[in-house]
Design a protein around this nucleic acid. Structure first.
Lengths: 204, 204
DNA sequence: TTTATAATTAAACATTTGTTTAGTTTTAAA
DNA sequence: TTTAAAACTAAACAAATGTTTAATTATAAA
């Protein structure tokens, strides 16, 4: 792993936990054990470093559902099931980074950053939108409010991820319960979402 | 309006748009047209000012659903309808502040702040939990996963509020569309949520 | 080996940060 | 009118911020 990658890894960790403004370049330098000047040497600025962080982490999840759209062996509801499980898996295992993205998304200064993030997040949502649309045209799905159905799907999963503390509170769990190491929570959420989407989408 | 209130109003505005760390006390002083020293005079520190901001804005919405729990003239699903509409109304008209709360909630440093916020947010969720529980005991509602049904309810509304840009993207709207001045969006969301909750909760 | 480019460093840079000081003005009760 | 507390101010404070500089070391091609 080269030096610039070490810096990015530290930046991801610190930005995620303490926020962009809450993290100093010196903290990142200390964590990645490089000289402070190396950060500007490789990334020219803290802001550009953030862009690199976003690029680095999201590049592998760009257009993950595009294959599903043209898949003809799976039924529409089976596609939704897969999307639910993959989304839960992906968001759960990158939850701190996921928090970082949404935190920055909700800030109105630095519009450039915000727009870049919303582009990435929306790309995947758009694939799901197409799949639901196809389901409706096929006659497999009811004529639901597509955009808001989508929002429910992502929003439910997202809300649980906001914070460990809040998640424990919602689930009525004790302090020693780690929501995101818990296998049962993932299964429980998956089951809930699949049931919900069936109720919403499938005709009787 | 006294001086300390002016400071709080400016702090709400700036913290909401630029975040806690992203806002300097001097910006707050300039916005509220007050000497910088007055902020520490009234609030002793920037962090304490934030606590006052949270206290000021959330005091009026503490336990807003407690009356509903003991109401006997409304049916259980009618209570859910009211909760949906009130939640949409409240979150939409305080969306910047709402973003601020969730942004801070997702940060792991400053655990004191985070816990204070999760307490406030959870109080209201807990009331809704009781109402769903009652519905199940009455036989009006199906034996759903209460906590995750709750999460869906709040999470859907919340996700639309994350950012104006994202909201426009989700809804497929143009740049000139202001999601939160739009009456139709509120109605559309209300309709979606009520339908969804009926599908989930009511027995056939 | 020479040489030019890249990588790395410690130190300094200019701002900005939250906070405090020391003094002044205002307020209102005695 | 006197007086003491409260409200307010300009200036200074020390620390932290992102960034740059100037010098040094490492790398690798000629």
């Amino acid at each position: 792993m080269d030096k610039s990658e070490t810096i990015i890894k530290s930046a991801i960790k610190l930005f995620s936990v303490k926020g962009f403004e809450g993290t100093s370049v010196r903290e990142i330098a200390a964590d990645s054990k490089v000289n402070v000047a190396m950060i500007n040497y490789y990334f020219t600025s803290k802001e550009k470093l953030f862009e690199s962080v976003v690029e680095y982490r999201t590049s592998f999840l760009k257009g993950v559902f595009t294959d599903l759209i043209n898949n003809t062996t799976l039924s529409d509801i089976e596609k939704i099931d897969i999307i639910i499980d993959q989304t839960i898996e992906r968001k759960f295992s990158n939850r701190e980074f996921h928090r970082l993205l949404h935190r920055e998304l909700s800030l109105e200064h630095r519009p450039q950053m915000r727009d870049a993030i919303s582009d990435i997040l929306f790309k995947n949502m758009d694939s799901v939108k197409t799949i639901i649309k196809n389901g409706i045209n096929n006659g497999a799905f009811k004529n639901v409010d597509i955009e808001l159905t989508l929002t429910t799907m992502i929003g439910t999963i997202h809300y649980l991820l906001t914070s460990d503390t809040m998640c424990r509170k919602i689930l009525g769990k004790k302090k020693n319960f780690d929501p995101f190491q818990n296998k049962k929570l993932k299964e429980r959420l998956s089951e809930h979402m699949k049931l919900l989407m069936r109720l919403q989408l499938l005709k009787k």
